[in-house]
């Protein structure tokens, strides 16, 4: 458990670094899709589901949003109050701030098509 946890934290650091390199972080010019995808993944410790969700998300982002995303993994076990603020009850939950809505995607993100719909990267149907 503990070993996995460090692995995941490393992964978070890596992605955050990657995102930080990108410019125009605060841009609001594009209304359809944000230039930088601010993705928050809420997990409860390093459960298999958490690991799986993070891995799936990373693969997906690399494929569709390469260089335009920022993933923040929030461990609710460490920051329980954040669950309240973001209205999280299910884990894992990916919270995506879209220009006109906040989308919550729950589950281990194994169904890629659904995730893409949720991220508004793929038209419904």
């Amino acid at each position: 458990m503990a070993a996995k946890k460090t692995a995941a934290t490393k992964a978070v650091k890596k992605t955050v670094k990657k995102a930080a390199r990108k410019p125009a972080q605060t841009a609001v010019e594009a209304f359809e899709t944000p230039t930088v995808w601010n993705l928050k993944l809420y997990v409860a410790g390093q459960s298999p589901k958490s690991i799986r969700a993070f891995a799936n998300l990373k693969v997906l982002c690399e494929e569709h949003l390469k260089g335009r995303y920022q993933i923040e993994v929030i461990d609710l076990l460490e920051h329980p109050h954040l669950a309240r603020g973001a209205q999280i009850i299910a884990t894992p939950t990916l919270v995506v701030k879209l220009p006109n809505a906040v989308q919550k995607i729950i589950g281990d993100l194994s169904e890629t098509d659904r995730v893409l719909i949720g991220l508004a990267l793929q038209p419904v149907g």
Binding site: Y42, A44, G45, S47, K49, R52, A53, N56, L76, A83, I88, I89, A90, T91, P92, T93, Q103, K104, I105, I106, G107, D108, L109, S110, E111, T112, R114, V115, I117, G118
Partner: peptide, 11 residues
């Protein structure tokens, strides 16, 4: 909310 796989109520 969109469901994209297994989840739990740990939150």
């Amino acid at each position: 909310i969109a469901e994209t796989g297994e989840y739990d109520l740990d939150g």
